[in-house]
Amino acid sequence: MAATLCYLVARGDRSWFVGVLAATVALGGIFPAVHFVLSLRSSLRKLTAMRNPEASFRADADSFSIASELGSATLPWTAVQQLWRYQDFWIIVLARTSQITLPLARMTQEDQAFVVSRVAANGGKVGT
């Protein structure tokens, strides 16, 4: 749509269609940015409201658990769709809009290898 808009504007077209197309392209960029900012603010608000802003992560062969003062959850490894690996942290992707950030500061290489093996063995994609 953006390419079509550029083409029409370059041709000198200033019709109402170009205006609607420009508004659609602009909103297509604004909505994801607004969603990101609102999600970030909500997450940071919850984090600052916690007395002890820490969570624990435990893993075994069939499932993994996360717990904080706000609650806990145990999920099977089959719930993991993707594992995004970065230098200082990993992101466990459960669904399109549900992720868990996993800091690596306290994880041994053996624990990291275990998580990678469980995700891969249960059909999750492991990125680098």
Rank of each mutant, 00 (worst) to 15 (best):
R85W: 04
Q82T: 06
S15A: 11
V126T: 02
L27N: 09
E69R: 05
K125V: 02
H35D: 15
V80W: 05
E69V: 02
G123H: 07
D88F: 07
Q87H: 14
S43G: 13
E110G: 09
A3P: 06
P32T: 00
I30D: 08
L104E: 02
R96D: 15
V9G: 04
L94N: 06
R106C: 01
S63K: 11
D60C: 06
W16C: 05
L70H: 15
S39I: 01
L44C: 10
P53R: 12
R41G: 14
T101M: 08
K46M: 15
I30A: 05
D13S: 11
S68N: 06
P103M: 00
K125D: 08
S42A: 14
S72H: 10
A95K: 02
L47H: 06
L75P: 09
P53C: 07
G28P: 04
Q112I: 04
V25C: 04
A67P: 05
M107W: 08
N52M: 14
D88Y: 11
S117P: 03
F89R: 04
G12C: 07
Q99S: 02
W90N: 10
L47V: 06
L44S: 11
I66E: 01
D62T: 10
T128L: 14
I92S: 00
E54N: 11
S43L: 15
T4D: 15
T101D: 07
V80R: 00
A23G: 12
L94Y: 05
